[in-house]
């Protein structure tokens, strides 16, 4: 018969300290977590309202002026979260999201791992080369989409050079649609790999802490 035993706190601490696998470290500071979830929620609203504005679903009789307002408001939210992350990175001198040449050199090996040609992923900094490429591209394309969104919001009153460079409203709309497709194609990959590669990393995005395996001697 199984008995539940209430242990004294000092004993519990000793058990944890003695048996913990690896070490628990803070890997995602509070501002990073706020950015991640805030940006994620904003992006979900932006993309879903954007798709609704692009091609209205006939089973959803939504008020379109409100859909447009939601699209614009959450775009500003997302930009705000991005600004938070950027400021946080500057203050902490955090360059973990900027891909470097040495990161990219590991990319073929990482692909070999994903295609089952290697048993383990190559060594990486905080993020592997695939993550770096995708995350960094997300920042860039989101800023591009926001910029084009701003140009279309002002209807050619400001940022006229953008209209001329791009070639008109229809091209702005086309580029924004392609960007949303890029997000829709890469976000599921991000979620899938977060769930199946290192669940401790996912936990860190909630609690801030992750467990690092013990260093091999």
């Amino acid at each position: 018969m199984k008995h539940s035993v209430k242990l004294r706190k000092p004993l519990l601490k000793q058990i944890k300290a003695d048996n913990l696998k690896g070490s628990i470290i803070q890997s995602q500071p509070l501002w990073v977590r706020i950015f991640h979830w805030g940006f994620a929620i904003s992006l979900v609203v932006i993309i879903s309202t954007g798709l609704q504005l692009h091609k209205p679903a006939h089973f959803l009789a939504l008020n379109f002026s409100k859909v447009l307002v939601a699209h614009i408001v959450f775009s500003w939210f997302a930009l705000g979260f991005l600004a938070l992350r950027f400021t946080d990175a500057l203050i902490r001198k955090d360059d973990s999201l900027i891909p470097k040449i040495r990161d990219l050199k590991h990319f073929p090996k990482l692909m070999a791992y994903y295609f089952y040609l290697r048993s383990s992923p190559p060594p990486a900094r905080k993020y592997n080369s695939g993550q770096l490429l995708i995350y960094f591209s997300w920042f860039l394309v989101f800023l591009l989409a926001s910029f084009l969104g701003l140009a279309s919001y002002w209807q050619g009153e400001h940022l006229i050079w953008v209209w001329r460079l791009v070639g008109g409203f229809q091209m702005i709309r086309w580029i924004k649609f392609m960007i949303s497709i890029y997000f829709l194609a890469t976000i599921p990959v991000h979620i899938y790999l977060s769930l199946t590669e290192d669940i401790s990393r996912l936990q860190a995005m909630v609690t801030g802490y992750e467990r690092r395996p013990p260093k091999k001697n």
Partner: peptide, 14 residues
Amino acid sequence: KNLLKTSSKTNHRP
């Protein structure tokens, strides 16, 4: 393998 490796908290049962 990945889930076991990244989700088990202790090396052995105390």
